[in-house]
Design a protein around this nucleic acid. Structure first.
Lengths: 237, 237
DNA sequence: ACAAAAGTGTTATTTGTACACCCATGC
DNA sequence: GCATGGGTGTACAAATAACACTTTTGT
């Protein structure tokens, strides 16, 4: 069966930039190797066509689950890419989403089909198909910007984590070292963590273990918002 | 002539949220009244189909110029809306853009065709067609957030303006009063304005007239970015 | 001289930044 | 008792917030 329209229509796809943090604190991205032309054998962002009665975010979640078997993770629309010749097969508009998952609690299933699926460290990506390098860069920039003002970093960590772990995560995402004292002061002052225990069996002073307290975070956000209201403008860029 | 595809495809449109600041410092949005069903006679955001060989932003700029006659203005992709039943005629995915124009220097041409085109104050909008109310709210929220950390406010003002004017603009966008002393200190400390003259013929102390110095702004951004790098995280929300 | 709106001085308080230091654990 | 990494004290500099004040113009 085919479908006929009076005017030509573009194809619409969703692509997913799936970030994961592995056990050794490396930030990685999931890519799949293309089985067909164009860009046969190149690595690409997972993605696929939007089904007619499916919401865009639902399509992204479906792709995500198909590739990783993971549900209920942080996902957010990134940007829509629609330059006319970005796909040699014709006009394809892609709505990109990025997702954050923690690889500790969501071990990603092996590739179920013939295609090759693999996690790559973000600074060791292969050459990508289509304009996927641009899409990836848009995503990593968004992640870096967003992590500064919203606690999305917690999405990448296990439910329970230590402050040194959190600090290393931030250092990894931002690509820079942070001052331990000041990092801790700032994070703890927000009061959005609750202590749930202590590390055991380590050959040094055991770290406190925390979990993210979503309720306290909501309260914190609310207070911050009211406070911001008075500041006006800062042009922090 | 018609176009046939193996699988069904959605229509793709762009919609524009066009913000303007009028002479009396009111923030307004341009709407058009629909001539046909569905939502006949309702007001809606200007928009239209994406032409096959046209970039998304180009489509938005084209719509903008068709409705306002204005070129070379600030425009930015906002979000892509694609809930399956947002348009009763079928699956329509819309990529929304928002634009900022100053009505002083770009007097908007009268509606050239039968359709009714009108500027509405942002807190006095009529009932909107489709999900345009949601799109509008997304846009105003983005504008409010963005104006705090990037000087996009300047896009709404004439090239030359006074600090009280700039402050009133911020107060309008943010919907709150700002402290004059602190607002001025903050803005001037950035060093991104250059004085170009004095007000004349007013029956009070004449205000200094400034223009936005894009070069100084770039330098300011660069310095700020380097500075931010050290801070790590703030969760300002 | 007055009204009106622009523009300034100053200060207490809160945040940011930097650096040195102490503490708990396993071996 | 030593190595290792977790955790803390503190002090100077800078940014913020608040309030009252002075200046310049036209009438």
């Amino acid at each position: 069966m085919s479908h006929t329209y009076k005017y030509p229509r573009p194809s619409v796809t969703v692509d997913c930039i799936i970030f994961g943090l592995d056990a050794s604190n490396k930030l990685k991205v999931l890519l799949i190797q293309r089985a067909n032309d164009p860009y046969k054998d190149y690595w690409a962002l997972p993605g696929g066509f939007v089904v007619m009665d499916e919401d865009l975010e639902a399509a992204a979640l479906r792709e995500l689950e198909e590739e990783t078997g993971v549900k209920n993770v942080f996902i957010e629309q990134l940007f829509t890419f629609g330059t006319p010749n970005r796909d040699p097969r014709g006009r394809v508009i892609t709505v990109a989403y990025y997702a954050l998952i923690n690889l500790t609690e969501h071990p990603v299933k092996a590739a179920s089909d013939a295609r090759n699926v693999k996690w790559f460290e973000i600074d060791q990506l292969p050459q990508l198909a289509f304009d996927h390098q641009v899409i990836f860069e848009t995503a990593i920039n968004r992640l870096r910007a967003k992590v500064r003002y919203q606690p999305i970093g917690f999405e990448l960590l296990p439910d329970e984590f230590t402050l040194p772990q959190l600090q290393r995560l931030y250092e990894t995402i931002l690509g820079m070292e942070l001052n331990k004292r000041n990092f801790r002061t700032r994070i703890l002052k927000m009061g959005i963590l609750k202590e749930v225990g202590r590390q055991q069996g380590v050959s040094h002073r055991p770290a406190r273990i925390y979990s993210f307290d979503k309720e306290k975070y909501e309260a914190f956000v609310k207070e911050k918002a009211e406070h911001l209201v008075k500041r006006g403008v800062d042009f922090e860029v």
